[in-house]
Every structure is written in structure tokens, then in C-alpha cells.
């Protein structure tokens, strides 16, 4: 099988190093893939704009209403929480992106090129998780901070703003970024399990948004017992300053949500490894 002596046009110019597939190299490959798609920028940008826009709008509305607001409502007002409320819509953008990081490869056929290059397969999933998780956490942290400051600026007209140094506030701001990142990673995991974009998106938002609605149909005592452990309810415990009595403690909730996410990624790993590409 030795190559003939004549230098062939198709051969690599020099004796190119015959590198092995390693996890850092797969990470680099996934980073190149992630940064080379328009949908990446589009989804993250939409998420950012929506979240910051809602912060400005919601806080401006509160400041406007403040003089006429009933005392009871004033007492329960959470200036930090109000400024990051837009996470509810941002999670749609981040979740869809997380699903598509995987399912985009199946719908286009790219997955076969990917898995031919990395036939052990699992390094691809770890790399996607790391690249998507890392970038999303940075972007959502910045977004949550901007939303927070924009919101507080709106509230300062009524002197009802809070500051990042106030107790519990950093947890709310960065907790929102953590929640959004986990939503995206949940999308990565579910996308790897179901392999189709519509299937991934509907299972993700079914779990996050529809399950709590179904719960409302159950008897109240059940709802109160189960409700806190639903993925979105658990995860969102991080995003409010004063959790209501039927939610888990912030970091407990975060841990429960993270368990769902880890379970989905492990499920994805099993499917990825076992099933034909």
C-alpha cells in the first residue's frame, strides 16, 4: 500500500502529521462549526434583544405605575427579578438554538460527516455541550447584567432600584444566566435523543412550558407536591429574590433542573452511541 514515488497532486504537500482524534481537537472542530452558522448569531442576538428590551419596558411600566401602586404590591416588589423577567422569552431562543446544534446536523446529513471524522461519537456530544454551554453562559450572563442595569436605570426615577451588591441580587442575575444555559443544554440533550428539530423543540418546550400547565388541571395538593420539581419551576427558583412557598430553595431547584439536563444528555449519549447514524 506504499504510495508511489511520483509526487501526486492529491497528496498532502509535506508529510502532514497524522494526528489522532483527541477531545481538544473535537472541541475545536465543534467551535468552528458553532461560529460558522448564521443561526447561532441570530438566535443569541434575538435572545439578547428580547431580554434587554423587556427589562427596559417592564421596569419603565413599574416606575410609571409606582405612585399609584397599592402598598401591598409595593411591599412584594422585586426590582432585580423584574429586570430579568425577559428570560421567559429569551429561553425560547436559547432552547431552539440548543436543539438545533444537534438536530441541524441530522436534518442536513452533516452528522454522517461528523461521525465519520469522529467514529467514537461521544467526544462530539461532549464538545457540543461544552462549546454551546460555554458560549451561552457568557452571552446570557452579559445579557442578564445589561438587562439588570437597564432595568434599574428605569426604576431609579422612583428610587426603587436595587444594586448588584444587595443581598441575593447576584444570585438572581447570574442565576438567570445559569437557568438559560441549562435550558439550552436541555435542548442539546433532547435534540440528541430525538434527532429531529420539531421533535426536539416540542419535547423541550413541552417539558418546560406545557408540564406546568397540565399540573394546573390536577388537584391543588398534588400540584403543590409535584409542581416544585417540574424542570422549569425548579430551575426558575434561581431567578427570583423571594421564592414563593411552593418552590424549592434556589440552589436546590437549580440542582434538580441540572439533574434533568444531565439525564437528557446521558440519554442522548446512549442513543448516539447505539443507534445508526
Amino acid at each position: 500500500m506504499s504510495t508511489t514515488t511520483a509526487p501526486a497532486p492529491v497528496s498532502a504537500a509535506a508529510t502532514a502529521p497524522r494526528g489522532k482524534v483527541t477531545q481538544p481537537r473535537v472541541l475545536k472542530s465543534e467551535w468552528i462549526k458553532f461560529r460558522s452558522l448564521r443561526s447561532t448569531y441570530l438566535s443569541l442576538l434575538i435572545g439578547m434583544v428580547v431580554m434587554i428590551g423587556i427589562a427596559a419596558l417592564a421596569c419603565w411600566a413599574v416606575a410609571n405605575r409606582w405612585p399609584s401602586m397599592p402598598a401591598m404590591e409595593k411591599a412584594g416588589f422585586d426590582p432585580a427579578g423584574r429586570s430579568i423577567d425577559g428570560f421567559f422569552f429569551a429561553q425560547l431562543a436559547v432552547g431552539v438554538l440548543g436543539v438545533m446544534v444537534v438536530t441541524g446536523e441530522y436534518s442536513t446529513g452533516m452528522i454522517r460527516a461528523t461521525l465519520s471524522a469522529v467514529p467514537r461519537r461521544l467526544p462530539v456530544l461532549w464538545a457540543k455541550t461544552a462549546v454551546f454551554g460555554g458560549v451561552t453562559f457568557v452571552v446570557t450572563s452579559v445579557t442578564a447584567l445589561i438587562s439588570f442595569f437597564v432595568g434599574q436605570a428605569m426604576l431609579s426615577s422612583q428610587h426603587i432600584q436595587t444594586s448588584l451588591s444587595a443581598s441575593g441580587v447576584p444570585r438572581v442575575v447570574f442565576g438567570t444566566a445559569i437557568y438559560l444555559t441549562l435550558v439550552g443544554l436541555f435542548g442539546v440533550g433532547l435534540g440528541t435523543v430525538v434527532r429531529s428539530t420539531p421533535g426536539g423543540i416540542s419535547s423541550l418546550f413541552g417539558a418546560l412550558l406545557v408540564l406546568p400547565l397540565i399540573l394546573h388541571a390536577l388537584p391543588t395538593s398534588w400540584a403543590n407536591d409535584i409542581g416544585p420539581y417540574l424542570p422549569s419551576n425548579a430551575g426558575q427558583a434561581l431567578t427570583t429574590l423571594h421564592p414563593d412557598p411552593h418552590t424549592l430553595a434556589p440552589w436546590t431547584g437549580c440542582g434538580v433542573f441540572a439533574l434533568y439536563v444531565v439525564a437528557s444528555i446521558i440519554g442522548g449519549a446512549i442513543v448516539l452511541k447505539r443507534r445508526d447514524a
Binding site: 502532514a16 502529521p17 497524522r18 494526528g19 489522532k20 482524534v21 481537537r25 473535537v26 475545536k28 472542530s29 465543534e30 468552528i32 462549526k33 460558522s36 452558522l37 448564521r38 443561526s39 441541524g104 446536523e105 442536513t108 446529513g109 452533516m110 452528522i111 454522517r112 460527516a113 461528523t114 465519520s116 471524522a117 469522529v118
Partner: peptide, 28 residues
């Protein structure tokens, strides 16, 4: 390998497609 069904993400440029594959094994 070149598979029958196109194994290319339609949203990515040819250059980035190849660059991403090359990166998995350190091809410059």
C-alpha cells in the same frame, strides 16, 4: 469517504465545513 446523501450543513461555507472536519485530527 463521500457518502451518497450529502453530508454537509447547508448553512455553512465549504471552507468552514472542511476546516471543521480537518480540525478533528489536526489537519492544518
Amino acid at each position: 469517504a463521500m457518502l451518497e446523501a450529502r453530508a454537509i450543513h447547508t448553512g455553512r461555507t465549504a471552507f468552514n465545513h472542511l476546516l471543521a472536519l480537518a480540525a478533528t485530527t489536526g489537519i492544518p
